[in-house]
Amino acid sequence: MSTSNQVTLKDAISIGIGGMVGGGIFAVLGLAVSLAQGGTPLAFLFAGGIALLTSYSYVKLSMTFPDRGGTVKFINQGFGKGTFSGGINNLLWVSYIIMLSLYASAFGSYAPNLWGLTKDTVIDSHIYQSAVVILATFINYYSIRVVGKIESYAVIIKLLILLGFVAIGAYGLFGNDHITQLAISSWESPLSLVTGGMVIFVAYEGF
């Protein structure tokens, strides 16, 4: 592989953060809140714990089996090449397609509010969804290094925006009666909290 197509550590971190602080967060946050209600912070912690264990496992597996195959390689090493591992790998690819579809759907839902192309929001959504998939495919095909560079700048912008939201949200908590919505009495059932956490994990999975 030429150096122009190699991803540096900074690029890899940027891609990972961009995967989480991007379509994932904005696409699943509303659904997670509707599931967990006041227990949403706990659902975030639960999802973060699962993501931490998953990322640690991936690091160890990648060091043991350094290969471009990634998860496919790990499954083949663990279970051998057969029907079971083949089925799991196909399921993995399907889950990636669903996850990317979720991101494209979120982008297509938000973009028309910023810039409408036609007078029909449904058509605008489909145009934006198709455009972002085609653009992402082209960039990945052209050079993975370019993806890292783009994410390096995009992540800074997104983190600044999110930090602004965090600061405003934290300020709004003081002297606000809405803080009672986080009380244990406002939490949903344990199953709903776990379900909300799994939905949030879709965002963390970008890393």
Rank of each mutant, 00 (worst) to 15 (best):
N89T: 07
S125F: 11
S109C: 01
R145V: 00
I139P: 05
G82W: 11
G82H: 09
I139H: 04
G108S: 09
N76D: 15
L92R: 00
L135R: 04
S143I: 02
A111L: 13
N90Q: 01
F79V: 14
Y128D: 10
T137S: 12
G108H: 08
T137V: 10
L102R: 01
R145Q: 05
P112E: 12
I134L: 15
T83A: 12
Y142L: 11
G116T: 14
Q129T: 14
G82M: 10
G108Q: 08
F107N: 01
I127R: 08
M99E: 08
A111E: 05
A131Q: 08
A136R: 02
L92K: 00
G87P: 02
P112C: 12
N76T: 12
S101K: 03
F107V: 09
S105T: 15
W115G: 00
N90S: 02
G86W: 02
I134A: 15
Y128V: 08
L114E: 00
S109Y: 10
K81H: 11
L102E: 07
S143L: 02
A111C: 06
L100S: 06
N90M: 01
G86C: 01
Y103C: 01
F84A: 14
F138P: 03
A111H: 03
I127V: 15
V133D: 05
G86D: 06
Y142R: 13
H126M: 14
Q129F: 08
N113Q: 09
A106Y: 01
F107W: 06
Q77F: 06
S125R: 15
L100G: 13
V122N: 15
Y110H: 07
N140C: 08
I139D: 05
I97Q: 01
A111Q: 08
W93A: 04
